[in-house]
Nucleic acid binder design. Structure first.
Lengths: 151, 151
DNA sequence: CTTGACTCTACAGTTAGCTTGAGGGTTTAG
DNA sequence: CTAAACCCTCAAGCTAACTGTAGAGTCAAG
């Protein structure tokens, strides 16, 4: 499945450049997704062959991993873009990054708090359900859980 | 702003039916959103006037509040739909609801765990940044935070 | 009885994050 | 040298959850 090119062609002085499919396999991301990320400025090939093939250096794998991690933790692509894109602007990124971090930390705190509350609430409902005799589930009241939870 | 109808017309025996705009104001939801929810089977007017106007009973306010709460806690409309829609199917909803709850609780647990980890990670970065002398922000390295975080 | 606020339906548009497809070149294993 | 496997671009489509618009009818106050 994962067949890595050992040789490469192109004018680059680094070694082990990857074609898009190889990068995709290594980073466990779809080829189309990588191209899509490129339109957003999140990844860029180190070079292009004459025929237009993208060639990435292995750093790109880490980049994609970073994106996936940040994403799985509720960062939007545009937030990731902000952090990654800032260096291109040539000015100090730190203030913006710090702001982003503070904002993110505050949001996480709030979400954790709300999720913890919800979890406790749901557990109460679930346990009430567990205590209920089975026949009760089939009374007129279609599901006591729904009556409790729904409104 | 909030002008409630005191009288109503229609064949319903309850009192204080609301027009869609009134319901929207009471529940703090856009009119269009309510109509959209109706297409998903999440809310239904108690009745319609001859001219087609929707008339809701005040229960609908609670329904919308429930939807908003569940939503703010990461439940999708289709999940909410599953819970609310089940009674229409005439069979016992409890097993499905229990399953949904368990699944949701597990997901919350995982998300809380991951968010807590990320928060700690981000706080480390932020604090490292705070300790950094200002000039360091303007060295060749455009932002040490980016170098640390990005890969 | 008219005017303005409200409502109706139907459908197009929006943002996010991709996926799929058409149509056509390129590489590489056998 | 040929056929499979890859790659390219461009464009459209998809899900979620709405928002907005057009064109037309309805209701309530003055």
């Amino acid at each position: 499945m994962v067949a890595l090119t050992e040789r490469f062609q192109g004018p680059v002085s680094e070694d082990k450049l990857l074609k898009i499919g190889e990068l995709a396999a290594q980073a466990d991301v779809a080829v189309g997704t990588i191209r899509y990320y490129e339109t957003l400025g999140l990844v860029e090939p180190a070079s292009r062959s004459e025929s237009g093939y993208r060639y990435y250096n292995p750093e790109a794998i880490k980049r994609l991993h970073f994106i996936k991690k940040a994403q799985s933790l509720q960062f939007s692509l545009s937030e990731i873009q902000q952090v990654l894109g800032i260096r291109r602007q040539g000015n100090s990124a730190c203030p913006m990054v710090q702001q982003l971090l503070n904002h993110k930390i505050a949001r996480l705190e709030e979400q954790i708090y709300r999720m913890t509350n919800l979890k406790a609430e749901l557990e109460v409902y679930r346990d009430q359900w567990a205590d209920q005799p089975l026949e009760a589930s089939h009374s007129q009241e279609i599901c006591h859980l729904i009556e409790e939870v729904s409104y």
